[in-house]
Design a protein around this nucleic acid. Structure first.
Length: 570
RNA sequence: CGGGGCGUGGCGCAGCUUGGCUAGCGCGCUUGCUUCGGGAGCAAGAGGUCGGAGGUUCGAAUCCUCUCGCCCCGACCA
């Protein structure tokens, strides 16, 4: 490709709406063009990047036995009623849906479990056909509450989604492991620094394990915790840890109500009673939402710890939880904010207790009365026995759940997510096959996603400097650029053209910067776009000398044209 | 959805508070001459319903109302 013939559209200034590096640089380099919030066009060069990522994905999935298919973007409501997800996705406002002129409802697919399960049901009838893994690379649509960060969180984006069908859960384990291998190979080949972590399965649901593949980057939207000693790694939404056990407070003693005027926070209580937070139980009221109802629930967590919303949502089996507002708190406790406690809540209020409090005795808590707290509270004696769950947020510095070392925190961009769905969808949608026993059995399913466009953005997020993008070679728009510095000088043009032709002839992924422009501007453009290797044909062209450099270190080497060819290919 | 901010040639912005004549600046674009290894100089040009609708006024980018869009901060996901 001659760069004189492609619209580069590089910008000298940062676009006003971009603030993370990948968004800023992709836009400045002219690689993406915004059409609406979270909706982009890709330039010819960007499309090459995406195609390269797609090809790596294809090769590695095919290697593990994946078979590429293509499923529709528009999906009928009935299908989503079968799986029971229509209401949830509509309630969460995450799905684009519309009616056709007859009033039939369809959605723009945010994911394809329903469609693929229906397909599998039609074409897979016997255990002899299993296992099988179907995948597609298709645009996905999600009505994100807040699209942002350019390609990081779009409303229309490109995703590879794969679905495995097995006869047994053991088979599913093997299919899942195969995908894990494929994902590891894919992100390694893309040249990314990543880590796989245990994850929450979220709205996709399912009964089995789930892991996310995270590209390590400071601007990542997810916090992850890992243990360098044991290799344990998890999204904070999911992460467990070992914390200092609650101190032994002895046998239960008589409840002791104390006046605590205007003492509302854990810090104030520590001072007022000269007692550590670890001996207290915070009572936090949440408003939880289910498909058909809303309810205020009380959550008890040790004074020195924090509640994890995702764990709480899962514990309740709710769609979502939000902190109760002041009005709701007053209504539920009959007291001012800061005095909620397990004692004195309305009859029937669900109380969730974090497991760290299970054996604790003689706690300090609120008691739903303004300006009072209680000492020697014993859960189950002074209030109904809480439902015990792990609803606590793990933190860096705490011990890994395996006890082998301390947890360290870092941030990551979720580029891949693999799930064991089990039989949830196949049962709901009656997707069955004839097993070896001759009886019908539901498929054991797995589902596996890769954000293709997000992967491209994360590569930029992880590989850039103040001058621009530094594409990893396997996914660069072109691996090599041959640039004529002065496109009006015949000797330069001749040598450069010869080099370009020669490299092309040997199958090198090379483009030719034959644009007539000043040298400085040309360098800036090429550095912004980020081709990994550069051959500059300049004033020494007559002697057959060119300049070779890599985008990464920009160190220039004057070598002969033939040496340059060797350098590129070596 | 709640809170904050912004819509002015392709991009980045000024002008708006205190209405006033042909709406400016930088980048980019076109043409010519010069320049030619780190975003060149000079000259001449092209390009704008000031997001949209309604209103106030002799007069609106500027004031009022409505509306659409975009960005940033909070709960979801690849």
């Amino acid at each position: 490709m001659r760069l004189s013939k492609t619209p580069l559209g590089t910008l000298r200034e940062d676009p006003a709406d971009a603030d993370v590096p990948s968004h800023r640089l992709l836009a400045r380099a002219g690689l993406i063009h915004k059409i609406a919030a979270g909706i982009y066009s890709y330039s010819p060069l960007m499309w090459r990047v995406i195609k390269k990522i797609k090809n790596i994905v294809r090769e590695e999935l095919d290697r593990e036995g994946g078979q590429e298919i293509l499923m529709p973007i528009m999906q009928p409501r009935e299908l989503w009623e079968e799986s029971g997800r229509w209401a949830r996705y509509v309630a969460e406002g995450i799905m684009f849906h519309l009616k056709d002129k007859r009033g039939t409802e369809v959605c723009l697919g945010p994911t394809h479990e329903e469609v693929v399960t229906t397909y599998a049901k039609r074409v897979l009838h016997s255990y002899k056909q299993l296992p099988v893994n179907f995948y597609q690379i298709q645009d996905k649509f999600r009505d994100e509450i807040r699209p942002r960060f350019g390609l990081m969180r779009g409303r229309e984006f490109m995703m590879k989604d794969a679905y495995s069908f097995d006869a047994t859960s053991k088979g599913l384990d093997a299919s899942y492991d195969a995908m894990k291998r494929a994902y590891t190979a894919i992100f390694t080949r893309c040249g990314l620094d990543f880590r796989s972590v245990q994850a929450d399965a979220g709205a996709i649901g399912g009964e089995g394990g789930s892991e996310e593949f995270m590209v390590i980057a400071a601007t990542g939207e997810d916090a992850i915790l890992y243990c360098p000693e044991s290799g344990y790694a998890a999204n904070v939404e999911k992460a467990g840890s070992r914390v200092e056990p609650s101190p032994d407070a002895g046998e239960a003693q008589a409840l002791d109500k104390r006046e605590t005027p205007n003492v509302r926070t854990v810090e104030q209580l520590e001072e007022f009673f000269d007692m550590k937070a670890i001996r207290m139980a915070k009572t936090i009221l949440y408003n939880a939402t289910w498909v058909d109802r809303e309810e205020t629930v009380a959550v008890l967590v040790r004074g020195d710890l924090e509640v994890n919303n995702v764990k709480l949502t899962n514990a309740l089996g709710a769609l979502a939880v939000t902190l109760a507002d002041e009005e709701a708190i007053k209504k539920a406790t009959g007291a001012d904010v800061g005095f909620a406690g397990p004692i004195g809540l309305p009859e029937g209020t669900r109380i969730i207790g974090d497991k760290t409090l299970r054996k604790a005795t003689n706690l300090l808590t609120g008691c739903c009365e303004t300006d009072y707290h209680c000492l020697n509270v014993n859960l189950g004696r002074d209030c109904p026995e809480p439902e015990w769950h792990d609803v606590r947020t793990a933190r860096a510095g705490e011990l890994s759940p395996d006890g082998k070392g301390e947890l360290v925190e870092t941030r990551g961009i979720e580029v891949g997510h693999i799930f064991k769905l089990g039989t949830v969808y196949s049962e709901k949608m009656e997707a069955q096959f004839t097993a070896e026993s001759g009886k019908l059995a539901p498929f054991h399913m797995g589902c596996y996603g890769i954000g293709v466009t997000r992967t491209a953005a994360s590569a930029v997020e992880q590989n850039h400097d103040e001058l621009g993008i530094i594409w990893p070679r396997p996914i660069a728009p072109f691996e090599v650029v041959v640039a004529v510095l002065d496109a009006k000088k015949n000797d330069q043009v001749e040598l450069a053209t010869k080099l370009y032709d020669e490299l092309r002839a040997t199958g090198t992924d090379v483009c030719f910067d034959d644009r007539k422009m000043s040298a400085g501007a040309k360098f800036k453009d090429l550095e912004l776009i980020g081709f990994p290797l550069r051959i500059v044909v300049g004033r020494k062209a007559a002697d057959g000398i060119v300049e070779f450099s890599t985008r990464k270190d920009l160190e220039k080497q004057e070598i002969s044209a033939s040496e340059a060819v060797a350098a590129v290919r070596g």
